[in-house]
Structures are given as C-alpha cells and as structure tokens.
Design a protein around this nucleic acid. Structure first.
Lengths: 340, 340
DNA sequence: CTGAAAGCGCTTACAG
DNA sequence: CTGAAAGCGCTTACAG
C-alpha cells in the first residue's frame, strides 16, 4: 500500500490539512510541526500523488507531443528541443507517434485531452484545420509545428531555404536541376525551387520533378526515373538529407560520382550530414530551436494569452562537399545531334 | 469550463452514477438511456478525465520511459519499440532524458512515481542498483534495459556480439586490432574483444584500447592516438556505429582508405550503417525488439508477477564494406628494421 | 435498471 | 497556527 497524507496525519496525530500544509511549505504553519511532518513523510516513504493534485489544481503539468514518425532524425531533433524546454519549465512530456495516419493523429490528440494535458504540440500534422473547428471537443491549446495555415505555429521558412540551395546550384553553373519532393510536406520547397529557376529564366521541366516518401528508400527509387530522362539532370535537390543519402547510394551503385558527375543537396542538416561521405550540402533547419519555441508559445497559450504571433525562423544554407560545378558537356552526345 | 459527468446528469435529469454507467457500457443499464446519454455527452463535448479515473482505479495506464540521450539513434530505436508496444496495449508513454547524469536520472524516476506511472523503463541507467534498495520509495515496477545486475532486465548479449566482429577481423587476417571503447557502457564489448583475441593466442596490447564518449566526436578524437602507435592497428573495432563513423571521418582526413588501408567496424546497425560509405560492417542489436520485450516484461510485473526471467537477446554480425583483409606488410618498414 | 453515498488523494477557503 | 468541511471528476458497492 502506498502511503498517503492521511496515513501521515494519523501517525503524527494531526489533521490531513496540516500535513498538506507542512508538505507544501505553507506560510502559516509552525516550524516545528513542519519539520516533524516532513521528516515523518520521508521516513514513511511518502511520494505525493500528482494525479490527486492535478485533479484539484485542474492542471497536470504535462504537455502532449504528437510526432508523426520518430524514425526520421529531423523529428527527433524537434523532440529533443521540446523535451528540454519542457523540463526546464517543470513540464513532463507525453509522447505519441501517429505515423502519418490522420485517424491515429486524431485519436492521439483526443487521448491527450482525456489525460488532461495542459497543452499539445503536433509535428507533421495532416489535419491541422480540424483543430480550428469550434466543435472538435479540444479545449486545450495546440501548437502545430511547420503549419502554414494554423494560427499557433512555429515554422521554418522552407521556401526561402529551398530557394537558397537552388540558387547555389545555379551559381555553380547547373541548368538541369532535378527535385525529389514529397507530396505532403514538400510544397514549400517545391515553391522555392520554382521561384529560383524562374528568377533565372529557366523554364520548369516537370519531368525533372519526382515524388518520394521522404526517406532513404524514396531517394533510392527516385534515381532510375531521373537518370532515364532524355536530358538527365546535373544536380538533384532532394527533399531532405535522408532522401539525399538514398539518392547518393543509388547513384553510387550506378558508378556516378558525387559531386564530380552529379551534385546532390539535402535539407535539414541532420548531424549525419556533416559526417557523410561526401559531406552534404544542405539547408539547416534549427530543429531544436523550433521545438523550444513551440514550447514557449504553448506556455503562453496555457497562461491564457489569446494572441501569440506565429513564428517563422530562418533556415541556413550549409555548403559542403556534395555539390560542385557540372561536368563539361558530353561532347559525343553533342556531335551525335544531342543538345545540352 | 469543461463539461463533467455532473453536467450531463443535470442536463439529462438522471444521477451521475447513471451517466457513468451509460458512458462505460455498464451491463445493467437500459438501452434507451444509454444511447440517450452517450449522444448527449457527445453533443455537450464531453471528454472523460482519465485523471479522475486514475485516482479511483489506482492505475494511470501510463509508463515512464527514462532515456539517457535521444541524440543517439540507438536509443531512439529502443524508444520506438517501447512506444509502439505500449500503444498496442493502450498505455501512454511519458518520456524524460537524463543525459548520463545520475542525479537527473534519480529525479526523473522520482517524478515518474509522483505521477503514478504504472511502471518504468530505463535505458542507459547509471544507478540501477539504487532500484534494488528496499528504502528507495519506489513502489512501481522498473525494467532496466541492458543491465547485467538488475533482475528485471532485457539485454543483448554484447559480449558475444563483440566476439563475433573481432573473430571476423581475425579471420580476415588482422592481428593488430584496436578497440575504441566507452567507459560506462563498453565493458561487455571489451570482454568480447579480449576473449576473441585470447582464443587466437594474441596478447592484449593495452595501447590499442582507447576510450571515447560513445559519439561521433569520440571516434574522431580516438584516431590520432591510435595512429601514433609504434605499431598502428590494421583494424579498429569501434564502440558503436557513431564512433565508427567518427573514426572513418578522421581516417579519411588523413588519407587513409577504409577498408583498403584499415578496416573499421561498428556496433548497433543503425539505419544509417547500411547507407554509409563505406557501408558499415557492424553488429546488429535488435533495438526495437528489445524495447518491445521490455514493455512485455513490464506489463507482467504490473500485473503482479514477481518472477520474470531476465531476457538476453542475440546480436547478429552484419558484414558489409568497411572491412577487408589487411594491406600487405610495409616492406620499407621491415627493411629499415621494423617488425610487423 | 437507477440513485445516494462513500471514497480515490489531495487542496483550500472558512472558522476558530 | 490548526481542524472540519467541501470539492476536484470520476467509480462502485449498497440499497431499492
């Protein structure tokens, strides 16, 4: 049997109220009994129940974090930022994954509400607009990471990030630049890609845009499609570092050298990006900072603030070894009638 | 104001007990009122409070997971296994990191108890023996992953794993095999390393054993020490994949080729290991399975079982591209009086 | 089938 | 400074 405040009260011959006050350092309590009770509690192995405390305080000191998929280190980075910031404010984190399944996402958020978390952070949400609906039963503040439409959001300007890498490729002299994108989460990067090319008066070639699942496997499957193009790309701008790594693997298997034969760029700047071979040119998303800011924003909302400004953080182009100028044009191909 | 069972009772003109029964599909309740109440609850936006429910049930359907450091993908793998298995049993997971700090570890476990988790899983524990002490105030079952001394543990046989890779290196013809270890968590691997060498009658050369922090950085710092050896190694058995990647980076910086000039092995078989260049020869730890088994064991203990068998899972040697036979002996060195 | 009562472990006005 | 009472949101014997 776990010992409760009542047990201590009985043992000490005082009322439960007094025990409660002693344990909580209440101002109006005699120093003697306070010390005595605290010591007694210690001896008796008392561990306060935050369950009971939450019930009366109407506050659980818990935030629910719904992460779409922990197997992507990018999300782990967010999680680390969230957990660290939450711990610094004495909040505990309850974690659930929903693996890109909208039904599971909804179930997770509902479960969070049943558990009376004080607030919720969602990354990789597929149903962010649901949280705006007035009849959704969700009465706790929700912050969505990287949402374009949801009002309480902290995001990274991925349009700009994409534009920057593609500019970098353009500056190196590339003209046939492919993009491996991801349907759900890749729209901003696609925008940035288009904008950069248009700024340089390069027409968009839709055959150079292929979709993937956003993981290493997706990068691998994208390559054959790209290489079978009548005019294959000299550079590939990938959805993220994971797909870049997949792409590089598939390229290497076909004896292409990166970056000598073809340049490849990532996105995210995972820890691994710097230590991969070749080290990845990529766009750094400050994921831990994003996580931390999301907690800050959520804490404001929990405090009752109604008007928080959506946050937009800046990404940073990181140039490493996976990009270079395109190889010289293929002379044989030109002579045989091709055009580069 | 969030709506409670009382609000629904008032609205429906019945007692709270009836509402509770209707909501919980209690057997003895008229179908009519059940349907009516459930619908009313829905309309009123009722979300049950598991806080309140936990208080009476003395069960929170929550397990606390203390992970030492989420920035190591190995621990993330464990976490994924744990979270998945927990979700399958309708348990939520509350997650805290303690970053190899024993004080924080203890504080986290205490906090879990305050929150009345039903059980605890700890990975990378530094104070596992504390949990055995009778006066520690911890009254919920605790499973420790990869513990050698704690009775409720699921672990991987790392001695054997280490032995296997070192055997592999030996079979390739290596005789000068270095080991980059980690003080806290590397003892088993060190054992396996020693055993394998002894089995082949190769004396242990302590100058070939260097310690590191268990991350990429540690691999990088280990290399200069190893290369400055009077008789440098032809193969390096690393604590884990991360250190192997650090080692390979440091080697490459010095123009060593892996595996032609020197072989390098990892441990863990992170996802990245297969896609690294060169693809890592390593020892697979079935981390998701370990996480899942830990949940299974914990659930047994929560159910009240007192005698669960510690589990020891087998690792698996995965041979890829980072190992090869040693280069031919350095003739110049031999001629100049050296000995290999 | 339904309601009144007690209780889970705590906190907090309200009296004294 | 301390105690008795009420209450947080639920569940569950106990009566009826």
């Amino acid at each position: 049997m776990t010992v409760s405040i009542k047990d201590i009260a009985k043992e000490a011959g005082v009322s439960p109220s007094t025990v409660s006050r002693a344990l909580n350092n209440h101002p109006r309590i005699s120093e003697d009994t306070k010390v005595y009770i605290q010591q007694l509690a210690q001896e008796m192995g008392y561990v306060p129940s935050v369950i009971a405390r939450s019930l009366v305080a109407n506050r659980s000191a818990t935030i629910g974090v719904a992460i779409t998929d922990l197997s992507d280190p990018y999300y782990v980075g967010l999680m680390i930022g969230i957990e660290t910031a939450a711990a610094a404010h004495n909040y505990q984190v309850i974690l659930s994954s929903f693996y890109r399944d909208p039904d599971r996402e909804l179930a997770v958020i509902y479960d969070f509400h049943q558990r009376r978390v004080d607030g919720v952070i969602i990354t990789g949400s597929y149903i962010e607009n649901t949280y705006l609906a007035p009849d959704n039963n969700f009465f706790k503040p929700i912050v969505v990471i990287n949402s374009l439409t949801y009002p309480y959001s902290v995001a990274v300007d991925r349009v700009k990030g994409a534009q920057q890498v593609v500019e970098h490729l353009l500056n190196l002299g590339h003209r046939r630049i492919a993009h491996v994108t991801q349907l759900r989460d890749g729209m901003e990067r696609l925008d940035g890609y288009r904008t950069a090319l248009e700024n340089h008066n390069i027409p968009i070639d839709e055959s150079l845009i292929v979709t993937c699942d956003g993981g290493i496997a997706g990068g691998i499957t994208a390559v054959p499609e790209l290489l079978s193009n009548a005019y294959p790309p000299t550079a590939i701008f990938c959805f993220n570092d994971l797909t870049a790594i997949g792409v590089i693997n598939a390229l290497r298997e076909r004896e292409y050298r990166v970056p000598q034969d073809i340049s490849v760029t990532g996105f995210d700047d995972l820890t691994m990006a710097a230590y991969y071979h070749p080290a990845l040119t990529t766009v750094r998303q400050p994921s831990q900072l994003v996580g931390q800011r999301a907690v800050d924003m959520l804490l404001q909302l929990i405090k009752g603030r109604k008007s928080v400004e959506p946050q937009l953080l800046l990404p940073e182009l990181v140039i490493r070894k996976s990009t270079a100028s395109p190889p010289p044009p293929d002379v044989e191909k030109i002579l045989s009638g091709g055009d580069v």
